[in-house]
Write a protein that binds this DNA or RNA. Sequence first.
DNA 1: TCAATGATTTTG
DNA 2: AAAATCATTGAT
Length: 185
Amino acid sequence: MKTGKIKKIRLNTKSKKNRVPREFFIRDVLDVAPEILGYKLVQKNQNSITAYSISEVEAYRGEEDLACHARRGKTPRTRVMYETGGVLYVYLIYGMHWMLNIVTGEKNNPQALLIRGLKGVSGPGRLTNALDIDGAFNGLDITSSEKIWVEKNYIENKRVTTYPRIGVDYAGEYYSNIPWRFVLE
DNA sequence: TCAATGATTTTG
DNA sequence: AAAATCATTGAT
């Protein structure tokens, strides 16, 4: 069918044009975090494309960060955090909630950004439920995937506020209080 | 305030 | 092989 074909081509062109490239993610997670707020997390389903504005993220930064899963080194689960930035780290927590993270930084520097909120969807578990994201997305490269990617978006008078991360009381005085949660106001 | 719920990691 | 941990959520 002709119309269907034309539509598909237009969508693909748009995604390639606006997609955030790998270089964006191969930087320190603390630089990526405030910048990615307001950017669009874009997902392609059958025929439709939906874009969600990223509103809240948390930074997890290296083996020295006692709240980071990589604090005890590389394991089967944390392996993907050691990859070059731009891939997804998706894991199950509390036996029921999938958490969506984007790996950042250079290879073998385990960092990740937990996506905690999108405009209209708050809570990291509710977010993955809404977007139908599960373990099958683990390791997916968002700089080349046709299913999910990030697009740049300019926000006028953008204001970012930082807070301590949620649910990391076990991480010791310093890392449980460090303001590595970033919220778009 | 606490139960649900199961993969991952440690041996608490 | 068994026990503990856990980037949450929703109901009581």
